[in-house]
Design a protein around this nucleic acid. Structure first.
Length: 287
DNA sequence: CCTGAAACCTGTCTGC
DNA sequence: TGCAGACAGGTTTCAG
């Protein structure tokens, strides 16, 4: 499910008590429930989770697509992958612990204040880590898209340091953190760049436009509380504003040509063949 | 270094 | 109605 805007929305809700939950910061852990053992990526021994008991949740933040839960002494990271989501329940006497667990729930933290945080994940791709410092897991991530140090010039240099198709490169979390299939397609459309363009062939002007497009699309996604696709995630409505994603065959809002769907790096990719012309790398090309 | 394929999973939708 | 196949917001690992 989630890319940067969806994770941001979930993190904000966990902090403020949105989406019908209670704010989690300041609560103290009573107990942990791991319902699908493979959800725990680290450490190997799930009994290690009990060290979280009696620790206070002091901070919740996002890094890339990771949710970072900073407890008194340890850190829990959550990655929602394709189908993960977070629910927060108030536990009442009639509700009790048994009342809140649902079919696809994989991991639960019960707080002493009668609140439960539930990680649900239909496809079981999601993972959690229990570590001493978040950097052990997030250290290899590329920059945050909104990082003020990420200038157009820096971005251009980054693009030119690889010879890779632009779409898979943007989705590579070690290159830049937070973009997934939807927001990459939307960003490339806004910048007028074909998804198979070589990263080192992107001009200074196009690089600048692409960075702006990424920020505009992600910013709008956050503003709309993320996207709600298929049967997953309720809340955000950015899907109403998609310009290419899942619009195969529909008219491009700019030129009217039908939006096309192709595979790039094994991912369904949506683009406008008119507004995002395929670059020609053939030796006979005209400059 | 780069690309594509496969694996990890369950659920939904489409077409025969 | 049944059933095969494609497809889904992600990431890792491996072969060429």
């Amino acid at each position: 499910m989630p890319e940067l805007p969806e994770v941001e929305t979930i993190v904000n809700a966990m902090k403020s008590g949105g989406r019908g939950g209670s704010p989690l910061i300041g609560l103290t852990v009573q107990d942990i429930l791991l319902l699908w053992p493979r959800t725990l990526a680290e450490p190997e021994d799930e009994s290690a989770l009990k060290i979280l008991k009696n620790q206070k949740l002091v901070e919740i933040r996002r890094r890339g697509k990771f949710i970072v839960l900073q407890f008194s002494d340890d850190v829990v990271l959550i990655h929602l992958r394709m189908s993960g989501d977070i629910r927060v329940h108030q536990i009442s006497s009639t509700n009790s612990i048994h009342g809140i667990v649902e079919k696809h729930d994989r991991f639960v933290i019960y707080f002493k204040e009668q609140v439960a945080m539930v990680f649900q994940d239909t496809r079981k791709f999601g993972r959690i880590w229990l570590v001493k410092t978040a950097d052990q897991i997030t250290g290899k991530l590329g920059p945050e898209p909104f990082d003020s140090n990420l200038s157009a010039d820096v971005f251009l240099t980054m693009l030119h340091s690889y010879h890779r198709q632009i779409k898979p490169l943007l989705m590579d979390q070690t290159f830049i953190a937070g973009l997934g299939n939807i927001y990459t397609d939307e960003s490339l459309f806004l910048a007028g760049i074909h998804p198979r363009t070589n990263s080192n062939e992107i001009s200074q002007g196009k690089a600048k436009a692409l960075l702006k497009s990424i920020r505009d699309v992600l910013g709008e996604g956050i503003h709309r509380n993320g996207s709600s696709i298929d049967w997953i995630y309720r809340g955000g409505d950015f899907q109403k504003y998609f310009k290419v994603y899942q619009r195969t065959g529909d008219a491009c809002f700019i030129c009217g040509q039908p939006i096309q769907r192709i595979l790039v790096g094994q991912r369904g990719t949506h683009f406008c063949p008119q507004c995002q012309p395929e670059p020609v790398y053939d030796e006979n090309r005209k400059e």
